[in-house]
Design a protein around this nucleic acid. Sequence first.
DNA 1: GGAGGACTGGACGATTTCGTCCAGTTTGTG
DNA 2: CACAAACTGGACGAAATCGTCCAGTCCTCC
Lengths: 219, 219
Amino acid sequence: MTDRGPRKESPRLTARGAATRERIVATAADLMLRQGVAATTLDQVVDVCAISKSQLYHYFPDKEALITQVIAMREHRMVVSQKPQLDQVRSMRDLERWRDSLVTGLRERGEPYKCPIGALANELSCRSDDSRQSLAAVFARWQGLLAAGLSRMRDSGELDPGADPGELAVAVIAALQGGYLLAETMQDDRPFALALDMALNHVKAQVRDPAADLTHSAD
Amino acid sequence: MTDRGPRKESPRLTARGAATRERIVATAADLMLRQGVAATTLDQVVDVCAISKSQLYHYFPDKEALITQVIAMREHRMVVSQKPQLDQVRSMRDLERWRDSLVTGLRERGEPYKCPIGALANELSCRSDDSRQSLAAVFARWQGLLAAGLSRMRDSGELDPGADPGELAVAVIAALQGGYLLAETMQDDRPFALALDMALNHVKAQVRDPAADLTHSAD
DNA sequence: GGAGGACTGGACGATTTCGTCCAGTTTGTG
DNA sequence: CACAAACTGGACGAAATCGTCCAGTCCTCC
């Protein structure tokens, strides 16, 4: 995603040009997270980004194309921030660490209590089927990262062999999304934490044999 | 909500007038659920509703006021459809019935896989603080109905005395919301069912004594 | 049967937003 | 240096949308 390689009809792009382009997308992504997609004006992007309108239309044919790139950036950022952690998941403790970093991340960053992907999905899923499918793919990828971790837990015997990592991952992400929505609406981060706790308990309920766990957790 | 009683400055409203007014709100609510609030035009409302624009502005000073009424109608409908069921909740079985009716309701009604309240919350929470607070109040009321049921389960001994109905309700509603979002985005109702199953399992984990349950569930 | 609310129907102005256009300047690199 | 890409800056047209206005008709209840 960072270097998007030899795309179609990219008429030679300088490092500087690529940087500007990236900055435009980042600015749009930020505004769209705070205000919504429809409520974000191209003139706003131009102003905040401190460029002239011609530049915006130099890099993007229209607003649609910009939105598409915003989605791509959100996917990229999700992978960058989630993959390192989720790839480490091999036990419930790892999963709890993941949850903790999400909760503290929610509190600390100055952004609204929103999921950058979920907010886009909510607004765009009914506007263009292309966007909807892209967002569905992002969710699928996120679930895939989580499901891989759960699979490792299952293969190592921590999870019950009958547990379905894919289904568990879907449920966990759903809790995550709902937690974001309630937290944002009520301006309170507790719903987010409660939702994630529920999700982890749901996973924990599939832990193979709690007693067996005690045998090697006597640290 | 249906009869909104003696509101401020309601200059005598005929039955017919009230009906038209209600029809406008219902039409707007429907369009806004399908397309989003910002994407719904007043001209669209006028067209679908088959009234003239003057009528719309006869009943509502501006779009904001209409949105406010849409929120009120959504709350009313939520209470009408949820309260009867949730007031009956006294056991896990009742809760499962509630879940089942939500799942089948999702499939059967022709609407998108969206929560009418959650979709509004997602779009409006960052636009006006008034709307955000109204929606927060709706969520709170919904959670209250559910929490009341969980309280009855706790008082009757089905739930552990240490269980917190309020927190449980928040988590369940969060799962519900996330389930809606994933279902809509992926155009698949399974995430919704998975999320609700997780939520009910979370409640069930607080059931006091599973063994005692067997004594009177031999039907 | 009369008063007042319900309603038509479309013209209209104001504003916002998208997207175009272009003449000219700056920057960077072969 | 020369060329190409990066960039300015604002004027501009087109379209959509909000909201106003009004002359006149229809309905309904007292």
